[in-house]
Amino acid sequence: MSKRLDDAYQWANSADGPVLVAVEGREEQGIAAESHSHARGQLFGSLNGVLSVDVEEGVWLVPSSHAVWLPPHEAHAGRSHGAFRGWSVYVAEPACADLPQRPCTIRTSGLLREAVLRACTWPIDASTPPLDAGRAHLAEVVLEEIRSSPPEPLGLPLPSDPRLQRIARALIEDPADERDLDQWADWGAVSARTLSRRFVSETGFNFSAWRQRARMMRSLEMLAAGAAVSAIALDLGYSTASAFIQVFRRTFGQTPTAYRARL
């Protein structure tokens, strides 16, 4: 973990110090964090690459164009795919009262990005004083961007039924698993009818569409990590690379190669 990101963790659960602490860092091997929470609210994103974030509502795949907001005490886990360069902002709990009360993803506007990167240059050692007028104004710009930016869904919603959630997480771990709905129902100790009906009511997707979305999300992670398109297709259970490319284009409006070029 880079020193700059390490230094910020002292503030993640601190009620003292500035209303807002921001850090930027880089990790050539990527980052991974098991489930945890912070006393402060957190806004974070990448400057290049893709992050996957696991929250109660589901699993989100977050490109560099977006950021994740987590209110205080919200459990989450996450990892990057490939080398990581990104930023994180910790907001004192009292200042989170009028910010979103549920986790969400928002688009990173140019104003938000520049304000955060400027705040990343502020000192964050133990003697950090309260923000002066100029820095307090910039901190309020960041808070207003969080407050006013509409959430944009980038995730894979999880069902709430524990039996269905167990099936869903197994598919997230191995999207290429070819068992059909009846076989998954047997494995999850639930009737096929209940599995089919509740998947729609609890996620908004039927079982087949949800599994296809899980495969597409994994493909974005693999593209960010540098995997070849043909290898991704085979690893995700597609019979040919062209079949994978066709589904990817239908889902994202461009080919995997074009998407990787944007990363």
Results as ranks from 00 to 15, higher is better:
Gln10Cys: 06
Asn13Tyr: 01
Ser14Tyr: 02
Ser14Lys: 08
Ser14Asn: 12
Gly17Trp: 06
Pro18Tyr: 05
Val19Ile: 15
Val21Pro: 07
Val23Glu: 07
Val23Ser: 11
Glu24Pro: 02
Glu24Arg: 12
Gly25Ile: 14
Gln29Gly: 09
Ile31Trp: 02
Ile31His: 01
Ala32Met: 03
Ala33Phe: 13
Ala33Gln: 05
Ala33Ile: 08
Ser35Cys: 13
Ser35Phe: 09
Ser37Asp: 10
His38Glu: 12
Gly41Cys: 07
Gly41Thr: 09
Gly41Ala: 10
Gln42Gly: 03
Leu43Lys: 02
Leu43Tyr: 06
Leu43Gly: 10
Leu43Met: 11
Phe44Trp: 02
Ser46Lys: 02
Leu47Pro: 02
Leu47Lys: 01
Asn48Ser: 14
Gly49Cys: 13
Gly49Gln: 04
Leu51Val: 01
Leu51Pro: 03
Ser52Trp: 00
Val53Asn: 00
Val53Trp: 03
Asp54Tyr: 10
Asp54Asn: 13
Glu57Ser: 13
Gly58His: 03
Trp60Asn: 00
Trp60Ile: 04
Leu61Asp: 00
Pro63Trp: 00
Pro63Thr: 02
Ser64Arg: 08
Ser65Thr: 15
Ala67Pro: 11
Val68Asn: 01
Trp69Ile: 12
Leu70Glu: 09
Pro71Arg: 01
Pro71Val: 13
Pro71Leu: 07
Pro72Met: 15
His76Met: 13
Gly78Trp: 05
Gly78Tyr: 11
Gly78Gln: 06
Arg79Leu: 07
His81Cys: 05
His81Phe: 15
His81Lys: 10
His81Gln: 06
Phe84Ser: 08
Arg85Gly: 04
Gly86Ser: 09
Ser88Asn: 08
Val89Asn: 01
Val89Lys: 00
Tyr90His: 14
Ala92Ser: 14
Ala92Gly: 04
Glu93Ser: 10
Pro94Ala: 13
Pro94Tyr: 09
Ala95Arg: 04
Ala95Lys: 08
Ala95Trp: 09
Cys96Ala: 10
Cys96Ser: 11
Ala97Leu: 14
Ala97Val: 13
Asp98Lys: 15
Asp98Phe: 13
Leu99Phe: 06
Pro100Thr: 11
Pro100Gln: 13
Gln101His: 11
Arg102Ile: 03
Arg102His: 04
Arg102Asp: 07
